[in-house]
Amino acid sequence: MDDERLIADLHGRWVLGWERDEGDPPFDFRRAFGEFYDFGSPDLRLYDDFDPGQRVATTAAGYGSIWEPHFDRMVSAHHAVDDGPHVIACPDLAASMLVFVARITTPDGATDIRTTTSLVWRRGPDGWRIVREHNSTRVLPAGDLDGRLPVYEAD
């Protein structure tokens, strides 16, 4: 498999790593994303504007600590790729971009979102790993994803 297709596959699987179903065990970021992030890199920069604190994490573990409490509170989170992934790959660095939609359900109700995500990957001894991440999210009108994906109907 060429690098562009490999990165596209990784980015698509990364989106599905954020899936949650009612009754799932506590969210463990490292377990879910150990194959995607460079947990040993001293130069990570990871950002998602959906984080209420809008923090920039400089370690994968630090990024996980942002998301674990939120995902533990969720009843479910279901995602689908809406566009992409679009990939540019060089021998040791690659960039990928995709758009996903998701329905996040908490005890307070459901929120539909559309997120544009850009990842920079670096090839190392363990393969391709994320070293940069930027996500921009727009909250959609309530129920916007109704009927778009059958899995959402069960929420």
Score class of each variant (00 low, 15 high):
M1T: 10
D3E: 11
D3P: 06
E4M: 08
E4P: 05
R5K: 14
L6N: 04
L6T: 11
I7W: 00
D9A: 11
L10H: 00
L10Y: 03
H11N: 12
G12S: 13
W14P: 11
V15Q: 10
V15A: 10
V15I: 15
L16R: 15
G17K: 13
W18P: 07
W18Y: 14
W18E: 11
E19S: 14
R20G: 13
D21L: 11
D21Y: 11
D24P: 05
D24T: 03
P25G: 04
P25D: 04
P26M: 02
F27C: 12
F29V: 03
R31F: 03
R31T: 14
A32S: 14
A32E: 10
F33A: 11
G34I: 06
E35K: 09
Y37T: 06
Y37E: 07
G40Y: 12
S41E: 00
L46C: 01
L46H: 00
Y47G: 09
D49N: 14
D49V: 14
D49I: 14
D51P: 00
D51N: 02
G53I: 06
Q54H: 05
Q54K: 06
A57D: 02
A57N: 01
T58E: 13
T58I: 12
T59S: 13
A61I: 10
A61K: 13
A61N: 08
G62F: 08
G62E: 07
Y63N: 10
G64W: 12
S65P: 03
W67F: 07
P69F: 07
H70P: 11
F71V: 10
D72T: 03
V75F: 00
S76E: 03
H79K: 04
A80L: 14
A80F: 13
D82L: 12
D82K: 09
D82A: 15
G84K: 09
P85F: 10
I88L: 13
A89K: 05
A89Y: 08
A89I: 11
C90A: 13
P91S: 06
D92K: 04
D92R: 04
L93H: 11
L93P: 01
A94T: 02
V99Q: 02
V99P: 00
F100S: 11
V101H: 12
V101L: 13
A102D: 05
A102F: 07
T105P: 05
T106D: 10
T106Y: 09
T106E: 07
T106L: 08
D108H: 10
G109W: 00
T111S: 04
T111C: 05
D112G: 05
I113G: 00
I113S: 03
R114S: 04
T115D: 04
T115L: 02
S118P: 09
L119K: 00
P125W: 09
G127K: 00
G127L: 00
W128D: 02
R129I: 01
R129K: 08
I130S: 01
V131R: 02
R132A: 01
R132K: 13
R132V: 05
E133K: 15
E133V: 12
T137A: 05
T137M: 03
V139T: 15
L140T: 12
P141Y: 09
A142Q: 14
G143I: 04
D144H: 15
D144T: 15
L145I: 06
L145M: 04
D146A: 11
D146F: 09
G147Y: 01
G147D: 01
R148A: 14
R148F: 15
V151N: 04
V151K: 07
Y152W: 14
Y152C: 10
A154I: 09
A154Q: 11
A154S: 10
D155K: 15
